[in-house]
Design a protein around this nucleic acid. Structure first.
Length: 275
DNA sequence: CAATCGTCCTGCGGGC
DNA sequence: TGCCCGCAGGACGATT
């Protein structure tokens, strides 16, 4: 469930909390999230490492460590970092805890255990398919209309919803913001990308960036259970126009908002405003 | 090759 | 009240 704005919020919180700090040791309560690495190697490599920088790549968090290592974390649906005051106050789904030199404890919790944690040499991490194939970041400086037009031309047969969710085209959009972006753009999620005219391509291009940046300002959307590192909810959920609002009235035209399923995922839209 | 579907897992809410 | 079922979704692997 954490999409670009939520992961960006967590990244900023973590930068303030642990960037520059040193991992004294790591406890693994449940190795369910560890990927491509044995528990003992995970602990041995991280022990004593300094967290040089923390960055976001799509919906993943990257912790750049010293000695050429890095840790990549994908929160998937319910992954969460938080900083317990004392180790006795861990939530019941905490799987990994990091003892930091300056900051105390940093905990990783994940109710549904879909989250993924890699520790590798940075050079090997960059070879992970998810990172190799990651599309342009729509909040970054490489996101330009000319590039977007090329992506639209390349993926003309896809429908708009599938296009927005494809992390190898534009990275960071998930199910919530895909619906919101298409509502803001007045575009029907079932339409083929190739059917967009130039005005619509520009509108979609702008609204992807606009919605995501606005959601970052509001520290993300708490739908289900997203929380920031201090445990606070996001602020964008009250601004959602269509997501999870099936059968409610459209805020623009008052028509009932529809829920359809595309590729096994819910899409919410207004059949009158979006064409 | 691309499109689609099932899978991982837990909590929650609807229905009876 | 309590139980059962279905649903929620990011990314990947299998299948068509």
């Amino acid at each position: 469930m954490p999409e670009l704005p939520e992961v960006e919020t967590v990244k900023n919180d973590l930068k303030n909390l642990v960037e520059g700090d040193q991992i004294l040791f790591v406890k693994v309560l449940n190795p369910c999230n560890l990927k491509d690495i044995a528990e003992k190697d995970f602990k041995n490599i991280l022990k004593g490492k300094k967290i040089k920088t923390i960055s976001r790549l799509g919906k993943s968090l990257k912790f750049s460590l010293n000695s050429g290592y890095a840790m990549l974390v994908h929160l998937k649906m319910t992954g969460r970092f938080y900083a317990p005051q004392v180790i006795d106050s861990l939530d019941s789904h905490t799987h990994i805890i990091f003892k930091m030199k300056k900051t105390g404890w940093l905990a990783f919790s994940d109710i549904r255990k879909f989250g993924v944690v890699y520790v590798k040499r940075d050079i090997d991490l960059k070879r992970l398919p998810y990172l190799q194939n990651l599309g342009v970041d729509p909040t970054g400086s490489f996101y330009k209309l000319d590039l977007f037009k090329k992506l639209v031309n390349k993926h003309g047969r896809k429908n708009l919803k599938v296009f927005l969710l494809d992390q190898s085209i534009v990275s960071g959009i998930g199910n919530i913001y895909a619906s919101e972006i298409l509502f803001k753009s007045g575009l029907n999620p079932l339409r083929a990308v190739g059917s967009l005219n130039l005005r619509e391509i520009k509108l979609l291009f702008e609204n992807i960036r606009l919605i995501l940046r606005k959601a970052i300002k509001y520290r993300g959307t708490t739908s289900d259970n997203f929380k920031d590192v201090s445990g606070a909810q996001g602020g964008f959920q009250s601004l959602l126009k269509v997501y999870a609002r099936a059968d409610e009235s459209c805020s623009v035209c008052a028509k009932k908002i529809e829920r359809i399923v595309q590729n096994g995922r819910s899409t919410f839209y207004c059949t009158l405003c979006q064409s």
